[in-house]
Amino acid sequence: MKPLKANSHLVLLLRVGAFLCLAGWTWVHFYWEGPYGVLLWQESSQALAERVGIDWDEFVGTGANDGLVQRLIGFTSWFYLGATILTVTVRKKSYLQMMGLLGGGALLGILAYARFVGAQSQIPMLVEHGGQVLAPVLLVLALHMGARHRVTIAAAMVAMMMTFIGHGCYALNLWPMPATFQAMTTEILGVEHETATSLLWWAGILDFVVCVGIFLKVSRRSCALYAAIWGLLTAIARPVAGMSLSLNYWGADQFIHEAVLRAPHYVIPLYLFLVWRRSDELETVAGDSKTEIGPDGCQTAGPGKITRSPID
């Protein structure tokens, strides 16, 4: 047993997840544009601007130049870049950096809200971003409280559930399924519409099954593993379906970031799988050497008691 090394791997995993997510969105902000137009270019924002004494042209630009809105969106890109760097540099006692990372999570929250509004206020759109929004938060929790701490694990479970519930709601057509779901399935698997619909329906069922399954000890590891694999497949489905040798840069600038920013969709379940694998192994060992393991998988007593992660 090498708990110290295992814990550092877990933190590294969460670090990679948060990094990829924020890096992907940084790319979107710098290369394309953040999805905030739907929040800022509307009558209520006009009223707000005028109430605080900002001229409308100054707020949205004259057309020939940028206004406050465009500059604000431009600044956001730099905040994303900063948060991305923090995922690499943050250490256990770097509280300021941790605050910065939490700010990155807040930025992702605003972004999720903008996407929610842009999707005609469909709740699953907001919910499915939970995994991404919580990715930097999980890293902070893992560093501060420990990668095996029950709060970190619980937060990871919530993050994973949000992603899968959001996807599941769409896949089961509880809300209108985004056209890209079916299109990607058709394009990658080469199946007809009916088959794609059927496959997605079953995938939606499994999305909910794993959300319940991770609460049952007997099934949590297999559910987390399935979620990691499915999360990875759905993330890479974008470039796989869309990229082509005939496109500029093979379409990489259009599609790669779509997979990258979805890293938490498979990294968080993988993290849970590894956490629970270790815990179950420890439990097996405990059965032999009377080590006490808590219900959340944390070792609570015994010869090699882990109270919190020694190194993160």
């Binding site: 056209a179 890209t180 079916q182 299109a183 990607m184 058709t186 394009e187 519409h193 794609a196 974008r238 379906a241 869309g242 379409g251 259009q254 599609f255």
Partner: peptide
Amino acid sequence: KVSTLGGASDGGYARPGVY
């Protein structure tokens, strides 16, 4: 063609052919 990019600017139809 089947479009898989949000906004459909990669060309093609976002909704299934039967739709």
